[in-house]
Design a protein around this nucleic acid. Structure first.
Lengths: 207, 207
DNA sequence: ACAGTTCTGTACTGAGTTGTCAACTACGGT
DNA sequence: ACCGTAGTTGACAACTCAGTACAGAACTGT
């Protein structure tokens, strides 16, 4: 009975996320968002309640994509667990993977974890953002830990190792590559680091 | 023959650094800087040429402190190298160490690497900042790598391992803890992760 | 066709921002 | 004691920003 929305919500939030990624939260004005998304200021306020609202909705969408993709990419039978983890780690080094078909971003700095970047910039004064970033991390940590436990069951990882600790460590490495990638280090170097980290995972003791 | 400066340059830059750390670059106005440093707007422009100038000078000072402390804390005889690295790693997890006597910052988020934080926020559009952050990283990387080579000479680290790669990896872990620390994770958890990372360093093969 | 309801974009307001400038202040040499 | 030089200050003008309000456009159900 009323005029339907002329834009696609997810498409708009995705464009906003890209903008926030490249210019930061405080570095993007509502006009920037309007230009990046292609819809007017009024629509932005009506649909998302202003700049902060856009950010929260964009982060929520990011979380949803993360929570859908990561477990799907890491879960599976015990036999291939370590290989799945290996593949995931190598992909993550070129940017947090969110879908199967998406190629690595051309600009490494723009591929860093969206939630982490926002938390670094405004997390100190914005508990909502901090919380959201923590949730993103938790989803990944449980998925990686589960994958590690599968690898342990399959005899590929030392069964005495704490899977949760190792998962944390691997994710911290990924977050670290986000930061170092923003400096302008070459993807090849980052990939080499990821391989080193993977190689250091504790294997079972053979007798 | 002229009026001497009434403020201490380094003191002002240190206060500015604190301000930039807590509110970010774009989140800090020149008035904020003026309030934090205690000197007027005009003096800031006269001495440092505006907000961006203040940032660059503050980062230069940060780099200098880093370049002085890290090698001093990590260099030394081969025997204690691994232990020095261990101590440095554990301290770094509570914030990048810059001096011997400074206690860990009360707020973990405010203790993260200054250069890394600025590079994350405005690095995409500011090559100067990116360069400075890269320099900070390089100084640390060479110091850690040198320490690792000393540990290798002493038989504490696998001599076949690539010291440069390991140093990169360790620093990436530290940068990762900066990010995760900003989420609000407990220092105890971060310390535990650092211990895990240290424990995974490749030891020499015993026969 | 029409009416009602929702969407869209532009114009406006008040607050906040940056960078500059001229007046003022303090100090050292003479 | 004075005077020139350099440091300091607060105020100012131009601009940008977030958020709001209003008028027009678009679509659906009758």
């Amino acid at each position: 009975m009323a005029r339907p929305r002329s834009f696609d919500r997810d498409h708009v939030l995705h464009a906003a996320e890209r903008q926030f990624r490249t210019t930061g939260y405080n570095g993007t004005s509502v006009d920037d968002l309007s230009a990046a998304t292609g819809i007017g200021r009024g629509s932005l306020y009506a649909a998302f309640d202003g700049k902060h609202g856009v950010l929260m909705h964009a982060m929520t969408g990011y979380y949803a994509r993360l929570a859908q993709f990561a477990p799907q990419a890491l879960a599976g039978p015990d036999e291939g667990a370590l290989e799945r983890l290996h593949r995931y780690l190598l992909r993550a080094v070129n940017g947090v993977p969110l879908a199967d078909d998406v190629p690595p971003a051309p600009d490494r700095a723009a591929a860093a974890c969206f939630a982490a970047k926002m938390a670094m910039e405004i997390g100190t004064s914005d508990p909502e953002v901090r919380r959201m970033a923590r949730d993103c991390f938790s989803v990944l940590a449980t998925a990686v830990a589960e994958c590690l436990r599968a690898a342990q069951r399959n005899g590929d990882i030392d069964p005495d190792a704490d899977a949760d600790d190792l998962a944390y460590l691997l994710l911290i490495v990924i977050r670290g590559t986000d930061v170092v990638g923003a400096y302008g280090h070459s993807p090849a170097r980052l990939t080499s680091i990821a391989e080193s980290a993977f190689a250091l995972l504790p294997r079972p003791h053979h007798h």
